[in-house]
């Protein structure tokens, strides 16, 4: 059984004019079918307004589909009685690090989720320790979040979700407001959780470099999933990706340009090492 499954999901925003009369309907998510298996690292790509964040909010029942159904661990997100189970199963990390920190001390913020779930105090302590250690923020447990960097704040937000012991973490552009160092910190922490703890990760982003290690990539445009597959498959379609306003990783772009100049290279090169290897090989053949 898939951990998350969306079945023909559609979500509409109703546009209203000043008097509140309906002006039109925006389809933010349009007929999306998706399924995510336990333990996968999924990336959802798309530029601003492609509907990727709206879709993400469906995964933990913050939004309900207008048409179609979302199943999280077999539970329909529209069922009121499952709402807390669903939010515990699929935790969510948001874009702005400041706007999701509730506590005034790091460890109290991480404890917020388990406190809401009614976990006994002793177990909360254990969970908080374990989650802070797994994002490498344990030494900061007594600090005030306002003094930390953006990357550190996001890792605390991740720890806060981890303390709820979810099966899946949905990250909605967690690195969009961070500097390159912070971005690396957060992405590495997420990758580690996926590898070591087997937590399913759904990463929503518009940074191509963060997508390379994903098991599966979905590309969204105007509310629809326009491409899906492994990063290699997706990035070999360079022209289609640039057409919807996204860019491919620099290495892939360089390989593409070299190919146009007559260097024999395969499609979908993603990392520097791969490209170097392939160039060496093609030179030897020549």
């Amino acid at each position: 059984m898939s951990l998350i499954k969306t079945d023909k999901v559609t979500y509409e925003y109703i546009r209203r004019d000043k008097d509140g009369a309906v002006e039109g309907v925006n389809k933010a998510v349009d007929n999306v079918d998706m399924s995510v298996e336990q333990g996968q690292f999924i990336a959802i790509l798309g530029h601003n307004g492609s509907g990727k964040s709206t879709l993400a909010k469906h995964f933990n029942a913050l939004l309900h589909p207008v048409e179609g159904t979302v199943f999280v661990d077999g539970m329909d997100t529209r069922a009121e009685e499952h709402i807390w189970d669903i939010r515990q199963t699929a935790g969510m990390v948001f874009q702005n690090p400041d706007n999701q920190i509730i506590g005034t001390v790091v460890e109290e913020d991480v404890a917020f989720g388990p406190e809401n779930m009614g976990v006994p105090s002793r177990e909360i302590w254990e969970r908080v320790q374990k989650s802070l250690k797994s994002v490498d923020m344990y030494t900061y447990r007594k600090h005030s979040p306002s003094r930390l960097s953006g990357g550190q704040k996001q890792r605390i937000a991740i720890a806060g979700v981890l303390a709820m012991q979810p099966k899946c973490i949905v990250l909605d552009e967690p690195t969009a407001m961070l500097d390159p160092v912070g971005r690396r910190e957060v992405i590495n922490a997420v990758l580690e959780l996926n590898k070591k703890e087997g937590i399913t990760v759904i990463l929503i982003t518009h940074y191509m470099e963060e997508v390379i290690k994903a098991d599966r990539v979905f590309v969204m445009d105007k509310g629809r999933v326009v491409m899906s597959g492994s990063p290699r498959e997706v990035f070999s379609r360079v022209s289609e990706i640039t057409e919807i306003g996204l860019s491919v990783p620099q290495v892939t772009l360089l390989a593409q340009e070299l190919k146009k100049k007559g260097v024999k290279l395969p499609d979908g090169l993603l990392t520097c090492e791969e490209l170097v290897g392939e160039i060496c090989r093609s030179l030897r053949i020549i």
Partner: peptide
């Protein structure tokens, strides 16, 4: 805008008022 974001984040972390809530440091 921050208040709206925060409300979302709190709900995503299962906040539903004081009912059945436990404390880390009671």
């Amino acid at each position: 805008r921050r208040a709206g974001d925060l409300a979302n984040a709190m709900e995503a972390r299962c906040y539903h008022g004081g009912e059945g809530r436990t404390r880390m440091k009671p």
